[in-house]
Computed example of a mutant assay.
Amino acid sequence: MSIQHNQEQIDSFALGSSVYGGRPTFALVRDEDGKDVTLTLYELLPTEQANARRRRLERRRQQASKTMPFGEIIDENVDGVDDWTWDNWVAVKVRQLSGSRLRSILQLVDESLRGSEHNHTKITSTGDSAVLLYEGAGIRLSLGFIGIKPLRRVDRMRALSRGISKMSLEECYYWYAKCRSPNCPGGEKALRTLLTGNRT
Results as ranks from 00 to 15, higher is better:
39 L>N: 01
157 M>Q: 00
23 R>V: 03
161 S>P: 09
48 E>R: 10
170 E>S: 13
27 A>W: 03
60 R>H: 00
103 R>L: 11
42 Y>S: 03
24 P>Q: 00
89 W>V: 04
100 S>E: 15
56 R>I: 07
129 S>Q: 05
68 M>S: 09
184 C>Y: 13
102 L>F: 11
137 A>V: 00
115 G>T: 08
167 M>C: 04
39 L>R: 03
158 R>N: 04
9 Q>F: 11
5 H>V: 11
17 S>C: 07
54 R>S: 13
116 S>L: 10
43 E>F: 05
53 R>P: 02
12 S>L: 05
58 E>T: 14
111 E>C: 12
97 L>R: 02
105 I>M: 07
2 S>P: 07
195 L>F: 11
134 Y>L: 13
199 R>F: 06
32 E>H: 11
67 T>G: 04
58 E>S: 10
187 G>H: 02
127 G>W: 03
98 S>P: 07
149 K>M: 07
5 H>T: 08
188 E>L: 08
69 P>A: 06
17 S>D: 06
132 L>N: 09
22 G>W: 05
122 K>N: 08
11 D>M: 11
188 E>W: 03
123 I>D: 12
180 R>T: 10
1 M>L: 14
3 I>N: 06
74 I>N: 01
64 A>N: 11
141 L>E: 00
100 S>I: 12
108 L>I: 06
143 L>Q: 00
89 W>F: 10
96 Q>F: 15
172 C>D: 14
71 G>Q: 13
171 E>Y: 02
